[in-house]
Design a protein around this nucleic acid. Structure first.
Length: 829
DNA sequence: GCAAGGTC
């Protein structure tokens, strides 16, 4: 039997399809797809299936000195047991194995991981095939000319693993221990995350240090035969054109001269035609950036792309490549769009004389640039966001095969009372690719045809006082572009790194700004471990890896040298351990500080109770026991806005898409204390027996609810929205005998209706959402399941799989068992 | 529980 191993299931399926000419069949083994035909088997891994770590005796952070990690053994162990198990089983029956992982460094290492697992079971020959894209020709070619695994290249990847682990773990533990942060809130550093964080911190430092400067700009509205346009004053500044006037007196003088002038004489007219080339094919970074300008975070864009890829609508979203492979036939792909929503665009592109796609500078071997596969989803299959991203990818492909646009630029210079004025007109002559790619700006600026010597009427003159602006914060996509240019991270990890910085409490909001903790971490690293916050570390590692790959150095040469450097870092760190720890702790406190306690004047802080919930408490505890409650939902963070009345900073609750601002916790508590409960009916739980009534209540934590007046003896409650005025209507719900409620918040009033009915509907919706989170369970399947009263995760878990499979069309018992296994696994976690 | 890199 010949065993073929790929990096992922998707690649396994496609290679099996090509080599078997479509006859391959899939079977499940330990939850892993194995594609089979004749005596061939293809199995896809899931990236790395083994990981590096320290032996278990190093697990306890308090028992081990971080410095000991430098010389600790490093072990490799399976991280995907079921896949490793499947690979072992198949190996025993194989008499030949072929590694067909991705054609890049990490792919070679993943291939070596598979190699060692196979080699452990059998002595059969193990070959390696390499192809730049999974197409019939390339794959057949590669399999006809198998090669050997490149152990040097794999060793280069291993050096990275070792160095990242040692530096990351040792320094993370050191900082966390020194600041006594051992729980979930440990303080992490790493080769990629820390230089990325430093980029953000450095930019914030520039902003904080920025000293704005005053300047003035002057504008004049000019008229030609009633046709108006704006021109800007400029002057000659040592041979170059300048618009900003730095001296107020000079600005006023120019303003007066322009006001006195009745006309401006055209002294120069220059016309230029400019070609505006269509964009290059999408790599991951360019895709994230384009999605970013549509309002998607990097993380969100990638997760949608992931789904579209798995569903078969677009190619692999993680790629550095910006050159389409030879075998991508643009005409054929355009053809796939005729007769679809994109019919018009496809037809017009097909009409072009020749169709030659654009090319970027980066050509890599692992995957093609991101493009649509030609398979089209039904509009209803995708939600709005997914469709928008899909359309972006389709239109980007269109743009890369479209004609350039041409612009006509018209520059006019006029003189008035010794003042120079200029206007730059821009007109789109040939829209070219803009017709199919409406995302990039194609805005025109109208300047009429004028001739030299012509007099123009000056209609209005304006003097604008301005100030220089600090540099702008990096947005997520700018940051990813910057990381790419510095070689930080990879196409598959950059967006995760940014997400990690949010999770670690290092950055907040979007565009991200650093917390006080982040500044302290970067400062500490700059002082004692400069390499870990510098992009140099990656650059040097890249060089070392290249040396290993070419055989000029060995894995041990490189890792030993790195260990020595880290030893030196620790020598310096140990001496300053307390100083570093104190500074980190102060910063952590600063990030949680709201302002003065009204009872004792010490700081009020966001604190965590023993049960894990957050509240506002006084730093003077236990002498001062003043507290304020916080909403139970989300992760509280302190924001810049401040309550003038209580001198307390506002609190915001981070909960992904449900993020909301709580404001001043003292104000919220005061409002609740002042508000009266409003009775709306009888409590369904204890009304008959004990006379409990339902009332609309405002809690000190800022939330509102409909709850029983006998609380805490009766805990019956229904949730209400946090914001808006609640109006109690005259109509009553026939079923529950409660009034209908309307919430007034902004423009459209929300008719919430009977609070019990509303809550029941909400719960039903929630359970559908939960179900849809399972792999391969779409909204439609969820609806079908709901028809047979499988509405919640709990329902799904206890049903008889065979029974449901017979009742629900299109869902197999195996599939249901898999979902149940998935739920079991989650519960076990 | 630490990193970064794969992938879902």
């Amino acid at each position: 039997m010949e065993l073929i191993i790929t990096e992922k299931d998707n690649a396994a399926r496609r290679i099996a399809e090509i080599l078997s000419e479509g006859s391959a069949e899939a079977e499940r083994r330990n939850g892993v797809n194995v594609y089979r035909w004749g005596d061939k088997r293809v199995v896809g891994l899931s990236g790395h299936v083994v990981g590096v770590d320290f032996p278990p005796e190093y697990n306890d952070w308090r028992d081990v000195q971080p410095v000991e990690l430098i010389d600790a053994d490093i072990t490799k162990s399976p991280t995907k047991e079921n896949i490793v198990q499947t690979l072992r089983e198949l190996s025993r029956r194989a008499d030949e194995a072929v590694i067909a992982t991705d054609y890049d460094r990490e792919g070679e290492l993943i291939g070596k991981e598979a190699y060692e697992i196979i080699d452990d079971e059998t002595d059969v020959p193990i070959k390696r095939v390499r192809f730049s894209s999974i197409t019939e020709r390339e794959v057949r070619d590669a399999f006809a000319n198998p090669d050997d695994l490149d152990f040097d290249l794999a060793a280069a990847g291993e050096a990275r693993q070792v160095i990242d682990l040692i530096w990351g773990a040792a320094l993370t533990r050191f900082l966390s221990l020194s600041a006594r942060q051992l729980g979930d809130d440990f303080i992490s550093v790493g080769r990629v995350q820390s230089p990325t964080l430093k980029l953000i911190v450095d930019r914030e430092r520039e902003i904080e240090a920025f000293d704005p400067e005053d300047y003035w700009e002057l504008f004049a509205d000019l008229l030609k035969d009633g046709d108006g346009f704006e021109a800007q004053y400029f002057y000659d500044d040592d041979g170059s054109e300048a618009e900003r006037v730095w001296d107020e007196e000079a600005a006023n003088e120019a303003f007066e001269r322009l006001q006195e002038a009745s006309a401006a004489t055209v002294t120069q007219v220059r016309r230029r035609t400019r070609t505006d080339n269509p964009p290059d094919p999408f790599n991951t970074t360019a895709f994230i950036s384009a999605a970013g300008s549509l309002g998607y975070s990097a993380q969100r864009a990638m997760s949608i792309a992931e789904e579209l890829y798995t569903a078969g609508y677009m190619t692999y979203p993680r790629t550095d490549n910006t050159v389409y492979p030879d075998d991508l036939d643009p005409e054929e792909l355009l053809d796939a769009f005729t007769g679809t929503t994109f019919d018009e665009e496809a037809a017009s592109l097909l009409e072009q004389d020749d169709i030659e796609p654009t090319e970027g500078d980066d050509e890599t071997t692992d995957h093609p640039p991101i493009h649509p596969t030609g398979e089209l989803p039904n509009r209803s299959e995708l939600d709005e966001d997914e469709w928008e991203i899909f359309e972006l990818v389709v239109r980007r492909f269109f743009a890369t095969v479209a004609e350039p646009a041409t612009w006509e630029h018209l520059r006019v210079v006029a003189e008035a009372n010794d003042c120079q004025l200029k206007a730059n007109g821009k007109r789109l002559v040939e829209p070219g690719y803009h017709d199919v790619y409406p995302y990039s700006s194609a805005s025109e600026n109208h300047v009429p045809d004028v001739e030299e010597g012509e007099d123009l009427v000056i209609d209005d003159v304006e003097l604008e006082a301005k100030q220089t602006q600090p540099p702008r914060r990096y947005g997520q996509s700018r940051l990813i572009e910057k990381m790419e240019s510095l070689g930080l991270g990879t196409k598959a990890t950059r967006h995760n790194t940014i997400e990690k910085l949010y999770d670690r409490g290092y950055i907040e909001q979007d565009p991200p700004r650093p917390t006080t903790l982040a500044k302290a971490v970067v400062e500490a690293a700059e002082e004692f471990a400069d390499l870990i916050v510098s992009e140099e570390m990656t650059a040097e590692l890249e060089e070392d890896m290249a040396a290993i790959a070419s055989g000029e150095a060995t894995l041990d040469d490189v890792t030993d040298e790195s260990r020595e450097m880290l030893e030196k870092v620790f020598d310096a760190l140990h001496e300053s351990r307390e100083e570093v720890g104190d500074h980190l702790q102060e910063s952590l406190k600063a990030d949680r500080t709201l302002g003065p306690c009204p009872e004792c004047g010490e700081d009020l802080l966001i604190r965590k109770s023993r049960h894990g919930s957050h509240f506002v408490g006084c730093d003077g505890f236990p002498d001062c026991r003043y507290t304020l409650p916080l909403p139970s939902k989300g992760e509280p963070t302190v924001i810049d806005e401040k309550c003038e009345e209580h001198d307390l900073k506002h609190v915001k609750l981070l909960a992904g898409r449900d993020t909301f601002t709580h404001g001043c916790p003292q104000c919220r508590a005061d409002e609740a204390d002042e508000s009266e409960d409003e009775v709306i009916g009888d409590c369904p739980e204890c009304g008959e027996e004990d006379g409990g009534e339902l009332a609309i209540k405002q809690l000190r934590s800022g939330s509102r609810l409909v709850g029983c007046t006998r609380y805490p003896d009766c805990e019956y409650s229904l949730p209400l929205p946090r914001r808006g005025d609640i109006e109690i209507e005259d109509e009553r719900c026939a079923e529950h005998d409660l009034p209908e409620l309307t919430v007034h918040n902004g423009d459209e009033p929300w008719e919430l209706g009977c609070p019990i009915c509303n809550y029941e509907e909400y719960q039903a919706r929630q359970s559908v959402d939960d179900l849809v989170d399972l792999d391969g369970l779409g909204e439609r399947t969820a609806e079908k399941l709901a028809d047979v009263e499988v509405e919640t995760l709990q329902d799904l878990q206890r049903v008889d799989a065979d029974e449901v499979a017979t009742d629900v069309q299109g869902v197999s018992a195996d599939q249901i068992r898999e979902w149940q296994a998935q739920l079991g696994a989650e519960a076990a976690d």
